[in-house]
Amino acid sequence: MTPPSNRTVRLGLLALAVAGGLGACTPTIRLEVAPIQIYAKLDADVRVRLDQELQNLLAENPNLF
């Protein structure tokens, strides 16, 4: 087996340098999501209104379900 020529060694070193350079220049993407706080207050009046609307809907459409 013959040793590699100088040109082959140089091309190999060049390929390693290019690969190392490209690997060092890889962009980094960071995604940060801030926590979302939701404050909800359910009022009993809203529930009563929804119940009343549902009763009216069922009364108007008895075959709905």
Rank of each mutant, 00 (worst) to 15 (best):
L31G: 00
A44R: 14
L54C: 00
N61H: 10
L13K: 05
Q52W: 05
K41W: 14
V33M: 03
D45L: 12
T28W: 06
N61V: 12
T2Y: 02
N61S: 07
T28N: 07
R49Y: 06
L57R: 13
Y39T: 08
L50R: 06
L11V: 03
A15F: 07
L14D: 11
L11A: 12
A17T: 11
Q37N: 10
R30K: 09
L22W: 09
T28E: 10
L14R: 07
R30G: 01
Y39D: 11
L31E: 00
R49G: 01
A44K: 11
V48G: 01
G12V: 01
A19T: 10
R30A: 08
T26A: 05
P27G: 10
I38Y: 03
V18P: 00
A40N: 09
D45Y: 06
V46E: 06
A40H: 12
K41N: 12
I29K: 10
V33S: 07
N6S: 12
L11Q: 13
R10S: 09
T8Q: 15
Q55S: 08
G12S: 07
N61D: 10
P27W: 14
I29D: 04
T26Q: 04
A59R: 15
L64N: 04
Q37D: 09
P62Q: 04
V46Q: 04
R47C: 07
D43G: 05
G12F: 02
Y39K: 08
I36Q: 14
G21M: 05
R7T: 03
N6H: 09
S5Y: 03
